[in-house]
Design a protein around this nucleic acid. Structure first.
Lengths: 324, 324
DNA sequence: ATGAAAGCGCTAACAG
DNA sequence: CTGTTAGCGCTTTCAT
């Protein structure tokens, strides 16, 4: 049988309320009894029962994480694993537990969110992605339940969110690419999914920067973030154009793109691409990789969420600077 | 304020215990009152408080999952995401919640396991990987706490585990490779990390099969599961040998291996490789991919664990058949 | 500075 | 079939 607060009380010769106070390190307990109680706790290896505590405090120290399967397909899964690592690590630091739930579609997401909230199991919820007219967000708002979303949401009013500063990163990526012996004054943006906020924001930064530098810019958008699309786009571009400078939105596109270049032995290019990934030696010099630091997103999300739960929210939503 | 069982009782004009019985669908409640109570539950949108229930039943309907960071690096992360999806899905089906915890090293794993168990938060624990002299396993055994481990453990006594039938899969992979117009009677195994049970088992199956077919077999083991090692091994092999038939342990090794072959335009090979991955068109014919179905591992792990928790364990440990 | 007692929301005997 | 009662293990007034 597990040891309870009562047994600690008996062992230390005090009341249960005293033990409880020692646990929360109340200032109105003498050091001597604190000492005694702590010793008993240690010796008997007492761990408070979280369920019991949760019941009375109406706090569980648990965060719920909603994972949309589609998003996992869309982004690369290393991205999500790293976000999750960030979440897990920060939660541990803040003494919170994490519950997660994979959802197959928007409906399931909404239901999981509701269920998690209504069961009283979690103190706050983190949505791993956001969509247009997100029902889960609307629900959480309506219930005034603490939540945070990863990725810039459609409506930003009273919604906590974290994201990379995609626009700035793309802006600087252009400068970076053009700073190293520019081959010519043309630059192209290789991406996919123009509905995605990430795509839109990176495109914005790209265009602004290109304009400032007086470059001729072009945008090529594929249908999805896949190697195949990267390959196809490269093929399309090099059929007619003579591009040299590229911003590539994501690593799958990049890989397909490079594959084409290799096959055609086109090495006279400058590329900046998002997400860290393994490059062959021949590309190390030509491709500048921008690490978007997924684990920082997870870290920041938990920070904000916990602050929100504990009512000490000076932090507004946070934009993670992608350092170069 | 959240609606409680008491309010349902009042609304339906019955006692709280009756409501409780209706919730658990007790056979000793008349259909008429069941009807009435269910109506009230629905109308007032009542959801049982899991904490309260957990406190009295000493069951939480929560499973803990320990994720070792090292393992994530070792295996490819899509593997883990898919295992997690399998876990999540099955847990949902069985009405369990999932808590997870990333651990940086063995010590942290052990501590997380202990903490999870002692806090009374979880009914069972799933270890996402196993090591030699695993302290967490020893602890869980000692505490007689329900747990399951993914991957074949060192000591199998009284330990529930799930794994692929790696040996059989490799056995059949060899037959498969040699069945399609074998180029010659030599076959090589490309792997890494001979300490890993997975490597050992696949190697066993490989060698048995090669022996049965009277093939000359060779084993090449790299230092890690990386593209670079795959490339290096290919280089090493084709410097001196004239191999045609290969079993490759994992997709990173495969990718590096193929890259070398492409560069040297060596296409006269037959390969079977583990894990599904995207292949270029040129390889579709030559490389046979064996899907190890990670989500099935997660699924089976939860099934076994829940059975074990609920005392209805006819299931022993389970080996997932890798279909070809 | 400490203890007694009430109660969080629920389930499970025990009674009838 | 249904109600009454006694906790589960903890925190938190309210006394002292």
């Amino acid at each position: 049988m597990k040891v309870t607060i009562k047994e600690i009380a008996i062992d230390a010769g005090v009341s249960v309320s005293t033990v409880s106070r020692v646990i929360s390190d109340s200032s109105k307990i003498s050091e001597s009894t604190k000492e005694r109680v702590r010793e008993a706790i240690k010796r008997l290896n007492y761990k408070p029962n979280i369920m019991a505590r949760g019941l009375v405090k109406k706090k569980t120290a648990v965060l719920g994480v909603i994972m949309p399967e589609e998003a996992i397909k869309l982004f690369s899964s290393p991205f999500f694993i790293e976000v999750m690592q960030g979440i897990s690590l920060k939660a541990k630091e803040k003494n919170y537990y994490i519950m997660y739930d994979f959802c197959k579609n928007e409906k399931e997401e909404y239901e999981s969110t509701k269920k998690l909230l209504e069961s009283g199991f979690v103190d706050g919820i983190c949505l791993m992605s956001t969509r247009k007219e997100d029902k889960s967000i609307e629900y959480l708002k309506k219930m005034e339940f603490p939540f945070v979303v990863i990725g810039e949401p459609e409506k930003k009013d009273s919604t906590l969110w974290v994201d990379n500063n995609n626009s700035k990163a793309a802006y600087e990526a252009v400068k970076k690419v053009m700073s190293k012996e520019p081959k010519n004054s043309k630059i192209a943006f290789i991406g996919a999914d123009e509905k995605l906020t990430m795509t839109i924001n990176r495109m914005k930064g790209f265009q602004l920067s290109a304009k400032e530098l007086g470059l001729t810019s072009e945008v090529y958008l594929g249908n999805e973030f896949s190697r195949e699309e990267g390959y196809r786009l490269a093929k399309e571009i090099f059929k007619t154009e003579n591009q040299k400078n590229f911003i590539i939105l994501e690593d799958n596109l990049l890989k397909g793109f490079l594959q084409y270049l290799e096959e055609k032995t086109i090495f006279d290019v400058n590329i900046a691409s998002f997400n860290k990934t393994n490059l062959k030696d021949i590309w190390r010099e030509k491709v500048f990789l921008i690490d978007i630091k997924p684990e920082k997103l997870g870290d920041a999300a938990v920070s904000i969420l916990v602050d929100s739960i504990e009512g000490k929210l000076e932090t507004a939503s946070r934009v993670i600077d992608i350092s170069m």
